[in-house]
Nucleic acid binder design. Structure first.
Lengths: 372, 372
DNA sequence: GGCATTCTTGTTACCGGTAACATTCGATGT
DNA sequence: ACATCGAATGTTACCGGTAACAAGAATGCC
């Protein structure tokens, strides 16, 4: 590269971001006046303002919001940690958070913890270090408590999404897992199933605990009991569902129905069944939590408990914004969202599908919101 | 609240983040020494280091990386703008970006432009203002050019994902749309289709232009021509596919096959067909770009051109990191990724499904990478 | 005209780190 | 005994904005 003959502190002006002082020099005013202009220009003579604006335009000046944040002690950023962005459930939660955050003038820092505790911890620390103003977390499980204690200790605004954490009182948006699981299980029983297997996470995940509770409630009501050999503990992803189903296929007698803890485990289970050339619901019934919207369109097939997924995100974001502006002293709030039973074909009942016929992106489903 | 009797600058110590100076005071050293300790502690007497570390622990001190960034002029952040995070294609891209960014020590700022140009512009400006070090963008279309000129002008490191922009030379990761569309269309022709409709975006979207080119190539090779009435222009989402299909259903004669520009339009089209009680592929064949992984497990059904989605994200992130470290002077690079034809049932051909039978999350598919 | 008032603009200091340089102190060499 | 050196630590200034206050100019009022 040809070095320029005149000494210059700035060999490539377009590459370097101009500062208020650069603009000030060009406009022949002080940095403070520039600051005033870019913040509305109150108390600046119109003529001066014009000169500054011209300098801003010429230098392509964009104020550094990081520097602003240092003074105001506001980063204008929220952190969001999910366990799997590719899971449509979380992708939808993310969209909900993003929408609300943006509307409130906040950016969203996204982390994908992949269900890894160490990664989660690292992300939490990084978020603190980056001074996000609030944190939205779909935690890995009860073990996440140690990761979050740092937040609780410093009174840091954060909201849990989907899963609560045993022994940690904090803001929370979750589904009504007990009631929903009970309803879904009751449905299986009502269409005649008696030998029902459950694919579910270990008990250190709150949704697993609660759904299992709901399942047991339904069984007890029907005078049935859950055989321990029919509870398969696994991770709530496709591989987990696949492995669990293989385990079930090794049993002497196949259960007549499978209750999968979420959409991904159901897909994994289905995959295992397909490989054995078994079909749902002819050979075995299959139900789960969480609708996979795209899948439902393709072929309204899986009977599911559909949760108001996007609302998990929007409400959580609103709660954390509330907490940020309202000071951290108020008691924790938790929002419990109801789920909706969508009876389709996979349960072996006659399909009474009532899916909406409009393809609207955000087809509103009528639901209530309870806030105890 | 009870005001404390002793004057204090800090009524709730746990709530306020400690600074190096707070730590310094507590440890009886200077701020600089604290800085040295938290950066490895070279040149600090072990005894002093211990005192500082103790003060750090007692105050729960976490260094402010925003302040650090102000000095180093490095925010440690990449921006990512996608048009729809809920689309599994983009969700997967996001995961790819996130993984690479994190490994390189970068955070990811996520924006969901929803295909809205004005929103996109706002996001780009916000990213500049926030001083992200690089930007990854799946642009809305050619009209995004005005939004991105600000970046190009300042030599800002950015990479386009999936779509190029007419008249803008820059780093780019995209699929080989021409060849892929040609192959997919040829397949439809080879299984006997002659009257084939195309659901596609307007020509201001590069992938639409290129795929249409591929489609025409295939038709020309077969001695066929595309009737203008069979090209439906629409947005590349489910609503678009739904509307387009309804339009096609209004034609005197239904085409024998539909070529949908992506997974979401295909789903919308399928939905419209279902409502008329038409089935795929019996009444009409349907193929598209982009596999919906979850859907493929459920029922390997749609014949698709499967793109190496996650690689779009990982490569783009690597390119932007490269650009950041390598200085902005080098010429633009573009990476063109090949797609893979997955013949399943929706095209009306006999299914020769070769989908992997392992449920591994990241089942590696063998592919090549070309970089012209 | 003299002084209060308002309007416009500038100065200084600071947000929370850290680079660059300065200082202190003990050890070493001759 | 004194210069030299190195290790440990401190001081100052700065990153890019802006709050708080100061200062100068223009206007109003009696």
């Amino acid at each position: 590269m040809q070095p320029s003959l005149v000494p210059s502190t700035n060999p490539d002006p377009a590459n370097i971001n101009a500062t208020v002082r650069d603009v000030a020099r060009k406009a022949g005013v002080s940095a403070m006046t520039v600051s005033r202009v870019i913040n509305g220009g109150n108390g600046v003579r119109p003529e001066t303002r014009l000169r500054v604006q011209q300098a801003v335009a010429e230098l392509d000046f964009v104020p550094n919001s990081v520097a602003r944040g240092l003074i105001s002690r506001k980063s204008g950023t929220l952190g969001l940690i999910v366990t799997d962005i590719v899971n449509p459930f979380f992708a939808t939660v993310v969209r909900g958070c993003e929408t609300v955050a943006r509307r409130a003038g906040y950016r969203l820092l996204l982390c994908n913890s992949e269900g890894d505790l160490a990664l989660e911890r690292q992300y939490v620390e990084d978020m603190i270090s980056h001074r996000v103003e609030g944190l939205l977390i779909a935690p890995v499980g009860d073990q996440s408590k140690v990761n979050l204690m740092a937040l609780a200790r410093r009174n840091f605004p954060f909201v849990l999404i989907d899963r609560s954490i045993s022994g940690l009182e904090c803001d929370l948006v979750q589904g009504d897992s007990v009631a929903a699981a009970q309803q879904l299980m009751s449905h299986l029983i009502s269409v005649g199933h008696r030998r029902i297997a459950v694919i579910i996470e270990p008990d250190n995940v709150s949704t697993a605990r609660e759904r299992l509770q709901g399942i047991k409630n339904a069984l007890r009501t029907a005078g049935l009991k859950l055989s321990p050999s029919l509870i398969i503990r696994t991770t709530a992803d496709r591989a987990g569902g696949y492995g669990a189903m293989q385990q079930l296929l090794g049993l002497d007698a196949l259960p007549t129905a499978i209750f999968a803890v979420n959409n991904m485990t159901a897909l994994g289970a289905m995959q295992a069944l397909r490989e054995r050339a078994l079909t749902v619901p002819n050979d075995v019934a299959l139900v789960c939590f969480d609708d996979v919207e795209h899948l439902a369109v393709h072929s309204p097939f899986l009977t599911v408990m559909d949760q108001p997924t996007e609302m998990f995100g929007t409400l959580a974001a609103q709660m954390v914004l509330d907490r940020i502006s309202g000071g951290g002293a108020r008691p924790p709030r938790s929002v419990i969202l109801p789920a909706q039973l969508l009876v389709r074909e996979s349960c072996g009942a006659k399909a009474r599908d009532r899916h909406s016929s409009t393809p609207a992106k955000t087809a509103p489903k009528r639901r209530g919101v309870s806030s105890p």
